[in-house]
Structures are given as C-alpha cells and as structure tokens.
C-alpha cells in the first residue's frame, strides 16, 4: 500500500476512518456533480421541446420530456447521418494508419540500429513542440488551394495519419522491451518484420489500444482541420456540422442539445466500455514524458 501513510489509519479508532472517508467521498461526489452538471444539463434538455427558449421555460430541467428535438436535428439536413459516418471514416482511418505506421516507426526508433536513427527521432520530438497554428496555414494552402483536395476523405485523414506523438508514445513503450529478446530471435534467424509481427506486437496490446483510443477520440472530437478542409455540407464531420447548426438555429436550446448529445454519445459509450484504457492512456504519455 504505497503512499497510504499520508493519511492516519486511525488504528485506535476505526470509526474515525470511516467517518473521514465518508466526508471525503461526499465532498468528491458534490464537486463531481458540479463538474458533470453541464453534461447532465445537455442530455436532459436534449429531451426538451422543439421551441424557442422563452420565459415560460424558466426551469433547470425540462418539464416535459419528448424526442421532438432529436427529430428536429435529423430533419435539419439530409446529411445528418452522413455527418456521423464522415466522422467515423475520418477517425477510423487515422486510427488504423496510426496504429500500423506509428508503431512500426516507434519500434524502429527504439530497437533497430540504422544511421540517422537518433537524429530523425530528435526531429520528431522537436516537431511535437511546434504549435499547430504554424503548420495549419501552409497545410491549408497545400491541400486545399494547390491540390484541390477539399471535401475529400483523403484531405481529412492524411495530415493526421501518422502523428509525432504516437511515434513518441510507442517508442517509449518499445524501449522498455529487453533487447535480449530481439537478439535471441535474430540468432534463430528471424528478420525484423517477423520479430515485430510475432514477438513485439503481441506484447504491446495495451499501448496499441491506448494509441487507438486516443487517436479515435481525438479525431472524432477535432474541429479545426475538418472545418478548414470541408466546404460542402455533405462532407462535414459532426463537429463542423454542430457549429453550422448552432449558427443556423441559435435560440433553439433543445435541438442544439440534441445535436450535442448525438455527437458526444458515441464517445461516452466508448469511454464506459473501455474505461481502463482511457485512464491508462492519460498516464502512459505523462510518466517519463
């Protein structure tokens, strides 16, 4: 029990410990209530009426619960479902290519000796420090103005298909694998691809899962690049669509909250089914960062 010694265990009076933990739990739960309130507010008002917000609606939660606002969001555009599909394609595409190519690069930087290894990895580290504002303008000029690729899935997926962060993340993990393991396999005649495929990858499920989840959620939620790369509403991602929906129907609280709930729901489902990897993903990048 590391670090438990910070708190007195109250060995002489166990009841004290129970009371203290109850008080702490109560404070933690009430603050969590404050932190989570906006989301509770969002979900509950998504079931509110599809009417303009007016003084007659002066309540914290809606009085009558209906599905009208969900209908209103899907009626807003013929592409409503397409937006979710577009977002899924973008997120899934970047996730698959990151898991494959970033982990391959991470492995090479960690365990394969070749000239330029250190230098190239250093470049990647430096690139991680550069604010995205620097690269967005040239990226926009390149893909949208020069290559005319706006409103394509390629434009949505390509810029993020191997990120420096994911290369860094997997390199950190692979560095921890004993080199002897790889040397032994080499002596037995396995080449690097075989070693990577049948020895390294099976050991790395957790870090690959963390990478996949981080990438998927990050891309599902991202706004900036899809906003620049799409101009037709058939190619919007859900985040971009939400923004236009907001601009078009401000004053309609419930349909807006319905749209927000629809866009956030897949991520909540993902979070509750894969909690362990989400929580692990937070520390994996930070410890020894």
């Amino acid at each position: 029990m590391a670090a438990k010694g910070l708190y007195s265990q109250h060995h002489h009076n166990p009841r004290m410990r129970v009371v203290r933990n109850l008080v702490l739990a109560l404070i933690l739960l009430s603050f969590a209530g404050v932190v989570l309130f906006p989301l509770v507010y969002m979900v509950s008002w998504s079931f509110g009426p599809n009417v303009k917000m007016s003084s007659s609606l002066y309540t914290v939660f809606p009085r009558k619960w209906t599905l009208d606002s969900y209908k209103a969001f899907f009626d807003f555009s013929p592409y409503s479902l397409r937006w979710l599909l577009n977002t899924f394609i973008m997120a899934a595409g970047t996730t698959v290519s990151n898991v494959i190519f970033a982990s391959m690069a991470g492995y090479a930087f960690a365990k394969v000796r070749f000239p330029g290894n250190k230098f190239l990895f250093f470049l990647i580290l430096v690139a991680m420090m550069i604010p995205y504002q620097v690269t967005q303008v040239p990226l926009y000029i390149l893909l949208v103005n020069k290559f005319n690729m706006s409103n394509t899935y390629a434009a949505l997926i390509l810029p993020g298909c191997v990120t420096s962060y994911n290369i860094f993340l997997s390199k950190q993990f692979f560095s921890g694998i004993p080199t002897a393991l790889i040397e032994n396999a080499k002596v037995e005649g396995a080449n690097q691809f075989r070693i990577f495929w049948s020895i390294i990858l099976p050991m790395s499920k957790t870090v690959l899962a963390v990478m996949a989840i981080n990438t998927f959620v990050g891309n599902w939620n991202t706004f900036f690049w899809p906003f620049l790369a799409t101009t037709q509403d058939s190619m919007y991602t859900i985040q971009v669509a939400l923004k236009t929906f907001k601009d078009a129907s401000w004053t309609l609280l419930s349909p807006m909250m319905a749209g927000a709930t629809i866009s956030a729901l897949p991520m909540f489902i993902l979070f509750f089914t894969l909690q362990k990897y989400f929580l692990e993903g937070v520390t994996v990048g930070a410890v020894k960062g």
Binding site: A32, V35, L36, P38, L39, Y41, M42, W45, V217, W220, N221, T222, F223, Q239, L242, K243, K246, L253, M256, M257, G259, A260, S263, A264, M267, F268, L270, F271, Q275, F278, L279, V282
Partner: peptide, 20 residues
C-alpha cells in the same frame, strides 16, 4: 472515471452547453 468524463466530450459540445 467520474472526473475524466468531461474530457471525452468535444470542445464544440462543451462550448455549446456553456453558451446556454
């Protein structure tokens, strides 16, 4: 988990809720 949930919602979503 409880405290991490808001991080799962996108910035667009959170902004829209806080606007209200």
């Amino acid at each position: 988990s409880l405290y991490y949930i808001p991080a799962v919602a996108s910035a667009v979503v959170t902004s829209m809720v806080w606007l209200w």
